[in-house]
Design a protein around this nucleic acid. Structure first.
Length: 698
DNA sequence: ATAGGGTTAG
């Protein structure tokens, strides 16, 4: 069930400003005898700004009730309820339609109470009055009251039944919708379409499709809305076969020009990873609206083509289309994928400008974006400002804190969660266990793991076990961690053994490492990370023979070590460095800065940790290799290219080297800056000589 | 051609 309240202008309100203008001539009165006032006003209300319509309306000698009501409806559609009310009050006579129109105006601006008051005040009500209020109640989630209206209404037509059915569907009361549908006397195409959409939105897309077939067999002709729904169901069920068939059919009967239909087709191809088809349809449809454009942004993002996704986002904004909650969600996701904090911030500003920053979906995306870009403080600010939160909000901030070393805060927020009676799920517990392992809260971690096992609404997954292994390993309980793995109810995977192997490196434990790596090589003989770890563990024990053997084995099995590199984004452009890299245009300055840093570090009594060199070379050489690691080069470049005192954010594709880790801690003191390094496993926030990871840098 | 029911993304 996902449905956003429409905060942004409803697209169907004003057909198109590009329609041929109704010759606005100053000399001739549009109200000529052969043009009935009703036709003229209708056209002007349809095609021209509302104030223009009002000027024409004011020229009509003595407008009848119907003309008044048309004008009231025009104000309502333009979002000008105040004007609608003023005109409504001025009306000499009112009929049921005028009252109904005003009721709808109240509902459209979100004032259901006022609509109800009007409903009670009006002299007589018809089935439309009842249905309008019923629908208004259902729209704001007051489905029980809607139900009461439905029960009480003296007469029900098909539209009334349909309103109740869709009211149930939009409020997740799918079973009730189904019952009503089966009970209703004359289901029409609207009823069927509502049910198809209902099934689809309740995650039963296959059933939606079979209902569509059933509908066709029962002789009801699908409308363009039906096709829009069915195509969405195809998209969600990844039924490209049926989707393509429908596409052909739709082309034949000329429904392709329908916005909803073409948008659904764009989504269909996007979801089925046929993005080029999706793109083609989008370009050909000529109808570029928020929804289809957002579908495109999302589609690129889903394929990991984040640059293109953000490109589409920008094009859309340039084109003058106002992004909405979904657009922002997708765009922020892509910023996340690119770790593009700068662009993420820009988009954040954009959401504020449009008044969407408090939306729960946008807020969630912002939290994730900031946390993934290493700025969890900004994520916390967003979290605190949000008026509405859901489980995803809580999970996002907990995981964000956990990954960025704010362990105690993560646990505190978890505690707050139960205060708000939010039931945690699998992801919440992963966040909590991650936090515990970060902070080496051994007992707390064990307690929470027990909690997961006892929580019947949560399934204990491999990831939870991995967190526990990480925790035990971090605390140096390597044997206990190994026993824990061997006693797991499910078969351990490579990842879980790698977690243990990493711990072995920190504690230089060869025995457990050997057993863990054996398990890994049985599962995946080409796992380069395991070879590198093993050879590091041997090296740190000065077992150069074993180091050599590991490397020979690697070569023999054709395992390629992933080259390590780091990058930093300065003013939206990305600079990459590998160890000892001199290809950067500013290489000279970078090395000069590094050498200066090296001198300062020595003053602080810093000694290179030579365990982190793989090769058996003499100490001086080791030092040279270490001092030009890619992360150091990126940081040095960052220091040169940013303002004094600002935070430096660097990424690395592999884990940060242990020597670099100690060096960067000191660098943060020497230069008086916060340095954020995101490596392949977590964030390290270096500040005033210490790191958020608690010096467990694997 | 005055008023109510189904439709697109995440």
């Amino acid at each position: 069930m996902r449905r956003f309240p429409s905060l942004i202008s409803n697209p169907k309100r004003h057909p198109s400003p590009l329609l041929p203008p109704i010759t606005p001539s100053k000399t001739s009165n549009p109200l000529t005898p052969n043009n009935s006032p009703k036709l003229v006003l209708f056209r002007i209300l349809r095609d021209r700004p509302i104030d223009e319509a009002r000027r024409v309306f004011d020229q009509i000698p003595s407008p009848d009730t119907q003309l008044f009501t048309m004008m009231v409806g025009g104000y309502s559609r333009a979002g000008r309820v105040g004007d609608a009310f003023r005109l409504f009050d001025e009306m000499p006579t009112r009929d049921v339609a005028s009252w109904n129109c005003m009721i709808k105006a109240c509902i459209d601006c979100g004032d259901v109470e006022r609509a109800r008051k009007l409903f009670d005040e009006m002299p007589e009500r018809n089935v439309i009055s009842w249905t309008t209020v019923l629908n208004g109640l259902a729209q704001v989630g007051r489905v029980d009251e809607a139900e009461e209206m439905f029960r009480k209404m003296p007469h029900r037509d098909t539209a009334a039944w349909n309103a109740m059915i869709s009211g149930y569907c939009t409020n997740g009361r799918f079973v009730d919708a189904r019952l009503l549908f089966e009970k209703m006397p004359q289901p029409n195409v609207v009823s069927w379409t509502a049910m198809i959409g209902g099934y689809d939105q309740n995650g039963e897309s296959e059933k939606a499709l079979s209902l569509f077939h059933q509908m066709c067999r029962s002789g009801i002709k699908p409308s363009s809305s039906t096709f829009a729904c069915v195509l969405t169901a195809c998209a969600n069920a990844s039924d490209l076969v049926l989707g393509t068939q429908l596409h052909t059919h739709i082309k034949k009967i000329g429904y392709l020009s329908d916005t909803y239909v073409s948008t659904s087709l764009v989504t269909l191809y996007a979801n089925c990873k046929e993005i080029e088809n999706s793109r083609k349809l989008f370009d050909e449809s000529g109808d570029r609206n928020v929804v289809s454009w957002t579908a495109l942004v999302t589609a690129y993002g889903l394929q990991g083509r984040h640059e293109e996704a953000l490109g589409e986002f920008n094009k859309m904004v340039e084109f003058g289309i106002r992004p909405n909650q979904s657009t922002f969600t997708s765009a922020l996701n892509s910023c996340c994928g690119l770790e593009a904090l700068d662009r993420g911030k820009k988009i954040h500003m954009c959401t504020i400008k449009l008044g969407l920053e408090l939306d729960v979906f946008v807020g969630n995306s912002l939290i994730v974006m900031y946390s993934k870009c290493g700025n969890v403080d900004a994520g916390l600010t967003v979290f605190n400002s949000m008026m509405r939160r859901n489980l995803v909000t809580w999970n996002s901030i907990i995981v964000g804190c956990a990954q960025n070393g704010y362990a105690s805060l993560a646990l505190k927020i978890f505690n707050d969660m139960s205060y708000y009676h939010i039931q945690p799920d699998e992801i919440t517990y992963i966040g909590i266990l991650t936090a515990c392992s970060h902070a080496r809260f051994l007992n707390k971690g064990k307690y929470f793991f027990q909690l997961v096992k006892e929580d019947t609404s949560v399934e204990v997954k491999l990831e939870h076990y991995a967190c526990m292994v990480d925790l035990l390993g971090r605390c140096g309980n390597l044997e206990e961690a190994e026993d824990f793995i061997r006693s797991m109810p499910m078969k351990p995977n490579v990842t879980i053994w790698l977690v243990l192997l990493s711990a072995c490196r920190v504690y230089s434990n060869v025995e457990v490492a050997r057993r863990a790596s054996k398990e890994i090589f049985d599962l995946d003989p080409h796992n380069s990370a395991a070879y590198v770890l093993m050879s590091n563990i041997y090296a740190s024990n000065s077992r150069w023979n074993d180091v050599l053997q590991t490397r020979v084995m690697m070569r023999f099995r054709g395992v390629v070590k992933l080259p390590g590199f780091s990058w930093i984004t300065i003013r939206e452009s990305r600079h990459e460095f590998v160890c000892g890299d001199r290809s950067h245009p500013m290489a000279k300055e970078i090395y000069k800065k590094l050498d200066w840093l090296k001198g300062r570090l020595k003053e602080y009594g810093y000694v290179y940790d030579k365990r982190f060199v793989l090769h058996d070379v003499d100490d001086e050489q080791k030092e040279t290799v270490l001092s030009y690691h890619s992360e150091k080069l990126a940081i040095s470049f960052g220091l040169l290219s940013t303002v004094e005192g600002s935070t430096i954010r660097v990424m690395k594709n592999l884990r940060v080297c242990g020597d670099c880790h100690s060096a960067i801690k000191l660098i943060s003191v020497v230069v008086g800056r916060e340095i954020v390094l995101r490596d392949s496993t977590r964030f390290h926030h270096f500040k005033n000589g210490s790191c958020s990871c608690g010096d467990y840098w694997n």
